[in-house]
Simulated assay, not measured.
Amino acid sequence: MFGASTAAHQIEGNNTTSDWWAFEQRTGSFIPEPSGDAADSFHRWPEDMDLLAGLGFNAYRF
């Protein structure tokens, strides 16, 4: 098997419905650099899966 893995926070981008996003934005948060726009995999996941398959990957962990 050969594949890739990721986490929602890394690839969704500007996920304002996430608890982590709310935590980052809170006044006094210890997060020095809050997340911003990312790869928008939330909307582009079919294209992302096609890209992985095109690379010969046969496994993906989200």
Rank of each mutant, 00 (worst) to 15 (best):
Q10S: 12
F57R: 04
L51S: 07
M1T: 13
D37M: 11
W45G: 05
D48V: 07
D40V: 04
M49L: 15
G36S: 14
G28D: 11
D48H: 04
R44E: 15
G36Y: 06
F42G: 01
G13R: 00
F2N: 11
D19G: 06
G56M: 08
A7Q: 04
E47F: 08
R44L: 14
T17I: 08
G3W: 03
T27I: 14
Q25L: 10
L52G: 15
S29D: 09
A39M: 12
A53V: 13
G54H: 05
L51G: 10
M49R: 05
G3M: 05
F57I: 11
F42Q: 02
Y60H: 13
S41P: 01
W45K: 04
T27A: 15
D48Q: 10
A7K: 02
W20I: 10
P34T: 14
A22Q: 15
Q25E: 12
G13F: 00
H9C: 05
F42V: 05
G36H: 11
N15H: 11
G13I: 00
A22H: 10
E12I: 03
A4T: 14
S5R: 01
A22D: 07
A38Y: 13
P46Y: 09
F62Q: 07
T27P: 14
F30Y: 08
A4G: 14
F30K: 08
D48F: 03
S18L: 01
W20M: 04
A7Y: 01
T17V: 07
A38F: 07
Q25I: 03
N58G: 13
